[in-house]
Design a protein around this nucleic acid. Structure first.
Lengths: 353, 353
DNA sequence: CTGAAAGCGCTTACAG
DNA sequence: CTGAAAGCGCTTACAG
């Protein structure tokens, strides 16, 4: 296979001869600048800039036995998991940790094949992945081989592991309840997910946030749990709204569930904002599109934390003593504020039931 | 920085001595199997399997002067561009082209910095990116340096370049119109984007699909163009529906616009399906969630085509003589079929006028 | 069909 | 503070 020419790169040798020093001094200027006399350093650096020199990734990796890369597993269906937003933030911040990302997909669910292959080729030094669950083979396999990794979401298969970062759903829903209280709404009901659902931990985490926050207010409210589906959300919201009065509010486990509340409320002649408080969760496109106040996931902090977790392990630094819980923030939508003047309502069909 | 031990990998030397051959023979078995005697090949391969040997990515890259990687630029906002779905498909099919992906983000829009840096480090051999536009510096910069690349979307800055793959919006909207005709709907109107919009080419492509398909039917219809925004879509849909009668239909440039039609229709007491035909475009989560028939983008074919385009260039093969137009497919939603029995309607508020 | 030599471009010891 | 030597693990010529 002939290689397409891509212009001659400058090598460390070119920089060394241009600066009148040896190759090692250039290497030191890059990797241990404190060992180089300031005047020499300055000269070397200016030659580096002039020639546009960058160390060859392959040569550096080969000598140092580090790929300088983090494998990131994507979900085969292209949704959820280490979602697009986290991946974007990871890609944005990877350079500051001196690594690049290598995304990969395993068509047959959470197995270990892809990890085994990439590690054998020394393609990556560590991994980031999401959606761990009881029975997940990945944390155990990696741990047994002392391969560094960090996960988005608690590691339910190995509660003793601390190399995870997660959204503090408890605090997030707490924020939602407080916000609704501060806006003057009365009882705050909850539309959430079944507690024994697939994403068991997440459902419970967010639910307890509502339990504790409403308990703190001294006023609890009705709750309904439904699966992550629009029709189910609408039906659940009707049940919930039947137990609430105008001036009350609903906190939701997700923006999709909040959209269901929006539909059901409208069907019942309730205006979200003036008549009913509503806060979703995730800060997703749904919330933005329908102007629903939401609890925004801290994607940037999540990405930075995950990168730091693997970076620390790669540096042999002592691991964190506990998982990292990151607090989401309130993303208010002006038009669903209590004071907003909603005037236009458009009826809309929802199929099913 | 001490390195965390990750278990001793087998090297080409281990395989060679285990199989009783020299290192080059192992290399040949991997890279030019036809040059190795079948019996020897078999013996080498069985040792490779037994030892779990994989060539070191860094060593191979250094010697062959190929990174074996494709840089993929992601949009800084995490949406659109080479979307999550294309990226997933790229990651899924990259191994069959013997490459891995390196996603990267440029915080300051479509510049050339990231490309320059990655190429200087020999981190990737080629690039894939999206959203080219008039004045885009990337195609010219890469072409001048003979760095291979392929784009998702036509290259408006360099019409002579053929290294692109795109969705055939013309054919897609044509499919939509034909489907609506086959279902027995009458006039087919169009809710699209302004033709001089940012995504100029896409808007025009899809619009002409409607023009040509309705002309072929011998019955044209009303058209309205609005920006990609739910409120604007609802307003535009009202204008459009005012010019249509029950039994007519609407084809849309996107699923979000189709959602606007769904809302406006419901507001006017029209049931999508029995009273009004509706087809969106993109096969997005919106269409699935609201059970809107849509034109699904061919993400897998797109990814495979993009990989093939860069692979051909890297192999020095003759480039394609024209861009690759991929035909999307109809993704019918049973509940909005003409014959469906829609019974449940839920009114829903849309904020803004 | 198989093997001995050279070298890809760095960094890591170590010696001055 | 700076430099000469060695070697990371492969593949690419080339010689047998």
């Amino acid at each position: 296979m002939p290689t397409t020419p891509i212009g001659k790169r400058a090598t460390i040798f070119d920089v060394a001869s241009a600066a009148g020093v040896s190759r090692q001094t250039v290497s030191n200027a890059l990797n241990a600048p404190e060992r180089v006399k300031p005047a020499t350093l300055e000269r070397v650096r200016s030659e580096i800039d002039r020639l546009g020199y960058r160390p060859s990734s392959a040569a550096r990796g080969m000598r140092s036995q580090r790929a300088g890369a983090i494998g990131v597993e994507l979900n085969a269906d292209g949704f959820s998991d280490v979602g697009p937003l986290v991946l974007t933030q990871l890609a944005l911040h990877a350079p500051s940790h001196d690594v690049h990302l290598v995304p990969f997909v395993q068509p047959d669910g959470p197995v270990v094949d892809g990890y085994s292959d990439m590690s054998r080729r020394n393609l990556v030094d560590a991994y980031i992945f999401a959606d761990t669950h009881v029975g997940d083979p990945r944390p155990g396999w990696l741990t047994a081989r002392a391969i560094p990794f960090a996960t988005f979401g608690r590691i339910y298969s190995h509660p003793e592991l601390t190399c995870w970062a997660d959204v503090d759903g408890h605090a997030g829903v707490g924020l939602a309840v407080e916000h609704l209280g501060a806006q003057g709404y009365g009882t705050v009901g909850y539309l959430g997910w079944p507690l024994n659902d697939r994403a068991e931990g997440v459902a419970e985490d967010r639910h307890r946030g509502w339990v504790d926050a409403t308990a703190a207010r001294g006023v609890t409210g009705p709750e309904i749990c439904v699966h992550q589906d629009l029709d189910a959300a609408v039906a659940g919201a009707h049940d919930l709204l039947a137990q609430l009065a105008p001036g009350d509010a609903v906190a939701c486990a997700s923006d999709l569930l909040a959209l269901g509340v929006l539909y059901a409320a409208s069907h019942r002649g309730l205006r979200v904002g003036p008549d009913l408080g509503l806060v979703g969760f995730d800060g997703s496109a749904i919330a933005q599109r329908h102007q629903i106040t939401s609890i925004a996931q801290p994607f940037e902090a999540l990405a930075q934390t995950l990168l730091r977790l693997v970076h620390d392990q790669l540096s042999g630094r002592s691991p964190a003593t506990s998982g990292q819980l990151l607090t989401p923030s309130l993303a208010p939508a002006a038009s669903t504020d209590r004071e907003s003047q909603l005037t236009a309502y458009t009826p809309i069909p929802v199929t099913g039931n």
